[in-house]
Design a protein around this nucleic acid. Structure first.
Length: 854
RNA sequence: GCCCGGGUGGCGAAAUAGGCAGACGCACGGGACUUAAAAUCCCGAGGCCCUAACGGGCCGUGCGGGUUCGAUUCCCGCCCCGGGCACCA
């Protein structure tokens, strides 16, 4: 065939990845619908998603690894006949764009769009199979208008509200920082020597705590999530069952109230309370210190200590300090008057900021009581219930939660769990307390005093107060040409045409909200938008969501285990309650890949150990970069990048290419049918067996642990075996002479198919060289035949007392009796056993023989 | 302190039912091809010891115990590294 001469290069030509990849890159660029998901299909749906990137400027190797995993899976699912949704987008609002505006004087929009263009080109060059028709860019009004729409819905239902609250403030940036931008326990991420301050500001909050219970409960219904992530979320939600108990203040009531409410998980120890402890910033403290400057100064000292410890990140390790206020409070259970102290180990932002101190039964209270010589009163003893042993003198503090309650009036003689229940009931009946549940999770503060984000669609009117922007007026557009300044307020404050609006209720003048939304709002629901990305009437059509959701597989870094993944779960749950979606959870299976490190440290510019995708693609090709990122370590573990390692992958790709090159002509002329096993020579049968074993191993890795490093190793083994045969050409036994044409054709096609999820460029090239019609992406994944994969003869080690002494070769299905006979008849074994007493012979069929001597 | 990972050759790693430790790859050594180099192809290789060699012995998966015919794998007690949480009452 004359045509072949042109298409097919010389047999042993070196693999030129740049030439081949450029060719396919150009072709794929011509076909924008190549990887499009079908909106309706009889095939099973499969939604595979990688976390969308922030358009920082360029991809790094962590991205490449993340997307290589997802792309392999997407391609595998396509080849297994699924209707695959595999989209990509941009988390494109955020502070770095504003920083660029300040430092490089580039408008945030321009900076962002330029970065997106660059990163998209990088992704396409890497050959990732995304459905770009569904691309989502969160900084476009077509997207963020729905953030505003959701906000209005939340506001209508009372799930969005406004309150005064403390926020992180960097005095050098002159702006509020997200919690994520506060590093090393209290420093600004851009000014690592600058401590973040706390400022009190009016903020918009989303009532995520309404869903705390369900968010916690449903963690138990996510078996497809890593245990690690579920534990992290559980800790973050931090549910704690306990009781609120009011201690009446002795004497005239101060302005902030007549009683101190304390939270405790151990109300059963309340008869052992010997003081009440307040956080230094507790509102009552200022009342109590109002007329005592000395006391006030001491409290200020405690506040300073706490703040410093928090900044240093070692709150929990500071030395406990406290000061007696001179005030007293009444224990409602026994009428006892207890001193009220202020202590630096009491946190204002947990529980009520006040505790009852029970030194005998709490580590911290014990330490504090020892220091300040407060009484220690034992009210729970070991034993009780089914325990036989009781001791009236346990080591202190005694914190066992299942002891016997004593010296506690009516409640003496109960075990702790029962006492906790009864005492909470008693408190409620008598009006001084109740059982309660507290959470560490707080409502989500979404206000940001920044420019580059979604405007919060709210108005403030002199007449009507807070007024939502009517739905028909959405989107509230983020203006361009805004001067990004460091004056301390939102830059939008300085834009009169944005700031001044008309009240939709009274028609009078109104001021627009100038804060923008936390960018985590954007990423909380973006994956729903992919399913219906061009919908201009609604964020999405519910029926379309019902088809695609939940996401079958979500892949990303574990650093998003809490924030993004909790917000996303919250968003799904309220959308379900609003009737917008039907699923309870957004993600069925979550996979968290490890970090890419080099020379023992995370790649970073300051360490100078950065490897960029661009240089890898230029030197080795996209296939090699992708394959190596999958080969160097299992995907869930950290990957230690070694420059020499990728060269080995490059060699492997060349070996595959040259092998196929040598035999392609035969394949192109061969029929599609594979020969029956019975017709094969033992050598050809061995090749066939290896092929089927390889298909099995690669398929099993996709179905199981995703240890693609071993999948790729398996393909390397197959190729090595073929080369081993090839070398026998000196005896006139090249692979083509050993393996019949039909099997050789099957072998080569399967090789291309097996490589397709990992190295798509080479795979497509081979597919074409082999004369195959149709897109490789839609070609069926090869099936293995378990019978053909089976070994006929196996070598079994023969051990004596657990040490290998010889080896025998037997039929794979040899009986235990036969194997034992053969083992005992082996010459080395006979010698070793001679004259000794055989105590036992263990035969594990298909595995080994162990002869136990005395 | 608590909760997760992890610790295996010079290096990245493999060993999915308790059954041959080190597959695959890197680096290294030897050879083939070449005038030469590169590229390519083949072979070798955990450590220590015995042997001229063929062969053979002992040790070896962080440390110490245990269970078992047999342990990288299971149990108990520790050490080290990475990550998360942390006066959470």
């Amino acid at each position: 065939m004359a045509q072949d001469e042109k298409v097919i290069p010389a047999r042993d030509e070196r693999y030129d990845a740049q030439r081949v990849e450029s060719k396919w890159f150009e072709r794929w660029q011509q076909e924008p619908t190549l990887y499009a998901a079908e909106s309706t299909s009889l095939k099973p749906k499969y939604y595979v998603l990688e976390m969308l990137p922030y358009p920082s400027g360029a991809l790094h190797m962590g991205h490449v690894r993340n997307y290589s995993i997802g792309d392999a899976l997407a391609r595998y699912m396509w080849m297994n006949g699924c209707n695959v949704l595999h989209p990509m987008g941009w988390d494109s609002f955020g502070l770095p764009a504003e920083n660029a505006a300040i430092s490089a004087n580039v408008p945030p929009r321009e900076w962002t769009l330029r970065n997106i263009a660059n990163m998209k080109a990088q992704m396409q060059r890497l050959g990732f199979a995304y459905d770009w028709q569904r691309e989502v860019t969160t900084c476009f009004p077509e997207y963020y208008r729905w953030n505003q729409w959701f906000f209005l819905k939340l506001y209508e239902r009372g799930l969005a509200y406004r309150k005064k609250s403390k926020v992180n403030w960097c005095p050098k940036c002159c702006t509020v920082l997200a919690n994520e931008q506060v590093i090393n326990g209290g420093y600004c991420w851009r000014h690592e020597d600058t401590l973040v301050e706390q400022r009190e500001l009016e903020q918009w909050f989303l009532r995520i705590t309404d869903y705390a219970e369900e968010l916690l409960r449903d963690l138990g219904r996510l078996p497809g999530w890593p245990e690690k992530v579920r534990v992290m979320q559980r800790n973050w939600i931090g549910r704690s069952e306990g009781a609120l108990i009011d201690f009446k203040i002795d004497g005239p009531a101060p302005p902030s109230g007549p009683a101190i409410s304390v939270f405790t998980t151990r109300v059963d120890t309340i008869y052992g309370a010997t003081s009440v402890q307040l956080a230094p910033e507790h509102p009552l403290v200022s009342d109590m210190t109002a007329e005592n400057a000395v006391l006030r100064a001491k409290v200020e000292q405690l506040i300073a200590e706490q703040r410093k410890a928090k900044e240093l990140g070692d709150i929990g390790e500071i030395e406990k300090h406290g000061v007696n206020t001179g005030w007293g409070a009444i224990n409602p259970f026994n009428g006892e008057k207890l001193p009220i102290w202020v202590a630096n180990y009491i946190l204002m932002d947990y529980g009520t900021g006040a505790i009852m101190s029970v030194p005998a039964h709490d580590e911290r209270d014990y330490e504090f009581a020892k220091k300040y010589k407060l009484p220690v009163r034992l009210v729970v003893l070991p034993g009780g219930g089914d325990a036989d042993e009781t001791s009236s003198d346990p080591p202190l503090p005694f914190v066992d939660e299942n002891g016997l309650v004593v010296n506690s009036g009516l409640f003496s003689g109960l075990r702790s769990p029962e006492a906790i229940r009864k005492m909470a009931e008693y408190a409620q009946q008598n009006g001084f307390g109740k059982a309660t549940v507290t959470y560490r999770l707080k409502d989500w503060g979404i206000s940001r005093q920044r420019y580059w984000g979604t405007p919060i669609p709210m108005l403030y009117c002199e007449e009507d107060g807070i007024v939502p922007v009517p739905e028909k007026d959405l989107p509230v557009l983020l203006p361009d040409n805004v001067q990004i300044t460091l004056t301390g307020g939102s830059p939008l404050l300085e834009v009169p045409e944005f700031l001044h609006a008309t009240c939709p209720k009274c028609g009078g003048a109104a001021r627009r909200e100038t804060d923008t939304m936390d960018t985590f709002v954007d990423s909380s629901w973006y994956f729903y938008r992919y399913a219906d990305a061009r919908n201009s009437q609604a964020p999405f059509a519910s029926d379309t969501i019902a088809y695609w959701f939940p996401i079958d597989q979500y892949i990303g870094g574990v650093e998003h285990a809490i924030l993004h993944l909790i917000y996303s779960r919250f968003w799904t749950k309220f959308m379900r309650d609003f009737g917008l979606v039907r699923n309870d959870e957004p993600v069925e299976h979550l996979f968290t890949q490890g970090m890419v490190i080099k020379d023992g440290a995370k790649m970073s510019k300051s360490l100078g150990n950065v490897v960029t995708p661009d240089e890898m693609v230029a030197r080795y090709g996209a296939d090699a970069a992708r394959l190596y990122s999958l080969f160097a370590a299992p995907p869930d573990r950290d990957l230690d990048w070694q420059d020499k390692g990728i060269e080995g992958i490059q060699r492997f790709l060349g070996r595959v290419y040259r092998f196929v090159m040598r035999h392609a002509a035969a394949t192109r002329n061969a029929g599609p049918a594979a020969p029956q096993a019975v017709n094969l020579s033992p050598e050809a049968r061995a090749v066939q067996r290896k092929l089927h074993q390889t298909i099995k191993r690669v398929s099993d890795d996709f179905q199981g642990r995703w240890h693609f490093n071993t999948s790729i190793a398996a393909i390397m083994e197959l190729v090595n075996e073929l080369y081993g045969l090839e070398e026998n050409r000196t005896r006139g036994e090249s692979v083509a002479a050993i393996v019949p044409a039909g099997l050789l054709a099957e072998l080569q096609r399967d090789l291309a198919l097996l490589l397709a999820p990992f190295a798509p460029y080479l795979a497509h090239e081979l597919w074409e060289i082999l004369g195959q019609q149709g897109n490789l992406l839609r070609a069926p994944w090869p099936k293995y035949d378990p019978v053909l994969a089976q070994e006929e003869e196996i070598e079994m080690p023969v051990q004596i007392n657990g040490k290998v002494r010889s080896r025998i070769t037997v039929q794979a299905d040899a009986t235990e009796v036969l194997v034992r006979e053969r083992a005992m008849a082996d010459e080395k074994i006979r010698k070793a056993v001679a004259g000794k007493q055989v105590e036992n012979v263990i035969v594990v069929p298909g595995r080994l023989v162990n002869i136990v001597l005395c």
